[in-house]
Design a protein around this nucleic acid. Structure first.
Lengths: 250, 250
DNA sequence: CAGCCCATCTGGTCAGACCAGTTTTTGAAG
DNA sequence: CTTCAAAAACTGGTCTGACCAGATGGGCTG
């Protein structure tokens, strides 16, 4: 076989990645200097840098000018299948573009779910709804997502499922963000709970149009609320005494 | 603000990324050569390479020795590993699922285009519309698609652009199929032309709601017409003496 | 006309130099 | 001996220019 690597840089990236995965290089550990790696691997420094940039792009490595490169602290997940997530991460405005699309698709999903949900679908939706409402409001981002997911699947449209599935991580991010930001505020939480209830009831009642409206209203409300919150935060109005920047340094 | 970028390489990666996001660089499109990018951005080729490696690590870019670098498609190429195509193959019904989703997204695109289209957008839409109407009705599948594409881009929503772009091949297939099947029939062709005209006019007039309705009506009509045709074909009732299989080969 | 070859695209790799932050060493002052 | 600031010795960041290696297209040759 002897699958020769596409490029030396890619090969180096692969070997470094393996060292990280098998524990030779632990999280937060300092990676040897570029010059040392270069001589150790027998390649030029430029190649080492290209390899490091590749790993950097994958979030496995962080480098700091003057200090060195380090194994990223977060768990390296082989989620190669979501370039969209990476693409949009760090672009706040895109969040609203995403919510704009979600408004349509979730609305359609609710509409179709109301029309097409089988007994089994209804059971899962109901279960997801109960789990969500009975759980700790501060940590139910995933349950929130599970509820929406159950609805999407009840639409029985594979394309819709697939498209939204492509946005899954991204969606989870936004749902998480919204829940994390909105839930602590009782007013928002109450409104959202009511909206979820309305979506749930209309789907169960088979009222397609109403379900669509409810889902769209919900997503739009989340979007607008986050926008409002964002403006508040920019005004340095912190309800929580916690500082916004304190999640780093080993 | 003045957030000075961590590094030039990262800055270049960001700028390339933005070009991809806003559609200046479409999926599968060839990225300018490293030497050209270097001189264009005013940096060394090494920096361009590091930036490309970062995007490579994020799955946004693919490069091939001797050929160049390309924007990766969000959905795996139409090879055998595309879940959507697998889904589609052998399940003709999926075509209607796709059209169902398209109805929503094209409607939203038209809505947003009517609201947000710049002068430049309007120019491109107008041009695409003219090209489409003046061309040979039997071979304008691509022009049809170009028209719809121009509208989507005028929505100025990168997420929408990329979601629809991911479905591009599939969409082109359906548009092509619809045009190929429907166009020879004068009645359908007339209706579709009128629908295109209505979409065009409402967008130009900035009538968002009307544009949305027009676009949705159009997609739904195409879907329903194809459904009708399909039933006709199964009944082997051919109005046109033409064979059903002759809409390919360049 | 067929076919080979070379000019010239493209990315891949290398070497060495220098700039710019960080850390460590060092040496002089207190 | 301690203190502390300057300097040396790290680290990554960038540039230059060269050469190697696939891919390609056009023109010369048989």
């Amino acid at each position: 076989m002897a699958i020769r690597p596409k490029s030396t840089a890619h090969e180096i990236a692969y070997r470094l990645e393996r060292q990280i995965l098998d524990g030779s290089l632990a999280p937060n550990e300092k990676i040897p200097s570029e010059r040392l790696l270069a001589s150790r691997f027998g390649v030029s420094r430029a190649i080492v840098r290209e390899a490091l940039h590749e790993l950097q792009g994958r979030g496995i490595v962080e480098t700091h000018h003057g200090k060195g490169s380090f194994v990223a602290s977060m768990v390296p997940e082989p989620q190669e299948d979501s370039p969209l997530l990476d693409l949009f991460a760090g672009h706040p405005r895109t969040l609203y573009d995403l919510l704009e699309v979600r408004e349509q698709l979730e609305g359609q999903a609710a509409f179709l779910a109301a029309q097409r949900a089988t007994q089994r679908d209804r059971y899962f939706i109901a279960k997801a709804y109960e789990n969500m409402t009975s759980a700790d409001p501060l940590t139910n981002a995933r349950l929130d997502h599970a509820f929406h997911q159950a609805i999407v699947e009840a639409s029985h449209n594979p394309v819709l499922v697939h498209v939204l599935s492509s946005l899954k991580n991204l969606m989870l991010m936004t749902v998480q963000a919204s829940v994390a930001n909105l839930n602590p505020r009782e007013h928002f939480r109450d409104v959202i709970n009511k909206q979820h209830q309305r979506i749930y009831k209309t789907i169960m009642a088979g009222q397609a149009k109403a379900a669509q409206r409810a889902a769209m209203t919900h997503v739009r409300y989340v979007s607008e609320s986050m926008h409002t919150l964002e403006e508040l935060e920019q005004g340095i109005i912190w309800v929580n005494p916690q500082s916004p920047a304190d999640a780093h340094q080993p």
